[in-house]
């Protein structure tokens, strides 16, 4: 076993009798008195691939931050593996986070380290593996995202898509119990999108992971997802299997699933009347 400090026994015992790995219960969250999340209930089933879809700016990234307790909700509970993540101490939180991988939307690679060192970083921080084994692990993860040949490049030499793939490799370096992918397909070419989708599904099944994907690429994602959530306006619009969602009679779901520009989901950030705005005379 690689982890330096082992799972907290309280955490594990509480967990195994629930089939949700992550539950959000009536979560409210606002930034600077602006409601971002307005009472959400989300259940992420253990061992599955769950996708959270929604228009950009609705708080999908915020949701992931709440699950990792980078941010703390105003009210409601975030339960991860049986514990209320906002009621545990720092040590327990860190023990839990070692088992959570997260791929950030921007990649957020360490700019002063090479690709190899970025992926090796969590291994070097949290394990006592000899360098030979670390190298083995890192090359394996890089091979999976197709960037084994780029291991000596610095992050500044990567394209946005490549950086996100390196971040993916880094997120799974510790073989965690769950991985959160924030927009993994954005900026990738169609071939890579396919490869990453397969990779996510394969990792999920072969390692027994739980995967949470945040995305707006509806078509691709529904193919590999076990469960879909559609969020908008700080609320869950609908949830269910891909088949259920395709045939949902909700206007919202239909608009989003079929990428229609018009519908209940507003394209515009809330604003006053356009004509009024244009006609306004500067005072």
């Amino acid at each position: 076993m690689w982890h330096e400090d082992e799972r907290n026994p309280n955490v594990t015992t509480a967990s195994n009798n629930s089939d949700s790995l992550v539950s959000l219960r009536n979560v409210h969250f606002s930034i600077a008195s602006r409601r971002i999340i307005d009472g959400m209930d989300i259940e992420i089933p253990r061992g599955g691939v769950t996708t959270i879809m929604g228009p950009s700016g609705t708080g999908k990234t915020t949701l992931l931050r709440l699950i990792g307790r980078q941010w703390v909700p105003d009210s409601g509970q975030v339960i991860v593996d049986g514990v209320d993540i906002n009621r545990i101490g720092r040590d327990e939180l860190y023990a839990l986070r070692k088992r959570m991988g997260m791929m950030f939307q921007t990649g957020a690679l360490f700019t002063h380290m090479s690709v190899f060192d970025n992926v090796a970083f969590p291994l070097r921080e949290h394990t006592h593996l000899p360098e030979r084994l670390i190298r083995h692990q890192v090359l394996m993860k890089l091979q999976a995202v197709g960037l084994r040949g780029a291991r000596d490049l610095m992050p500044s030499e990567l394209s946005g898509g490549m950086a996100r793939r390196v971040a993916l490799a880094r997120a799974i370096a510790l073989d965690p119990m769950m991985v959160m992918y924030d927009e993994p397909f954005t900026g990738q070419d169609p071939i890579t999108v396919g490869v990453i989708m397969q990779l996510i599904r394969m990792l999920n099944d072969s390692l027994g992971l739980t995967s949470i994907i945040v995305s707006h690429d509806v078509a691709e994602v529904s193919a590999i997802s076990d469960k879909l959530y559609l969020v908008a306006g700080g609320k869950v619009i609908d949830a269910g299997t891909p088949a259920h969602m395709q045939h949902s009679d909700s206007e919202w779901v239909q608009q989003f699933m079929n990428a229609r520009p018009d519908g209940p989901v507003p394209f515009h950030y809330p604003a006053r009347d356009y004509a009024e705005d244009l006609l306004e005379v500067a005072t």
């Binding site: 070692k98 959570m100 957020a108 360490f110 921080e125």
Partner: peptide, 18 residues
């Protein structure tokens, strides 16, 4: 700004110590 500190947090590495 580039979320490197947040990444550390999520990797259970305390940025204040590291």
């Amino acid at each position: 700004a580039t979320e490197q500190l947040a990444v550390l947090e999520m990797m259970a590495v305390d940025p204040l110590r590291r």
